[in-house]
């Protein structure tokens, strides 16, 4: 699996963990350990997203920095089979 697919998959797994922790924290809002896990994986996911967006293409508008060129439109479109 190429590095790009692996990074995309890792972002997806980190996002999954955050959703799971959020579901738990919904009913246990004061659980300190769960909050720490959430902050930990949130930082990791943000970092991976930033790295992916700089290396390949911005995953969403928030991650788009148009320092030199407008790269938002450059992302492959879902039906082009790139994001499989």
């Amino acid at each position: 699996m190429r590095e790009k697919e692996q990074l995309l998959r890792d972002i997806g797994m980190a996002d999954f963990v955050l959703i799971e922790l959020a579901l738990y924290l919904d009913t246990h809002p004061h659980d300190r350990r769960a909050q720490e896990y959430f902050n930990h994986y949130n930082r990791i996911k943000n970092q991976m997203e930033k790295e992916f967006s700089q290396k390949y293409f911005p995953l969403n508008l928030r991650l788009t920095d148009c320092s030199d060129e407008w790269r938002w439109g450059g992302a492959p479109l879902p039906w082009e089979g790139e994001c499989a």
Partner: peptide, 21 residues
């Protein structure tokens, strides 16, 4: 009531199992 006892640290396993708990 569920108590937080930690989560899978192998995220690949958690991802395939469909839960981190």
């Amino acid at each position: 009531w569920q108590e937080f006892e930690g989560m899978y640290d192998d995220l690949e396993k958690a991802y395939c199992a469909g839960t981190i708990f």
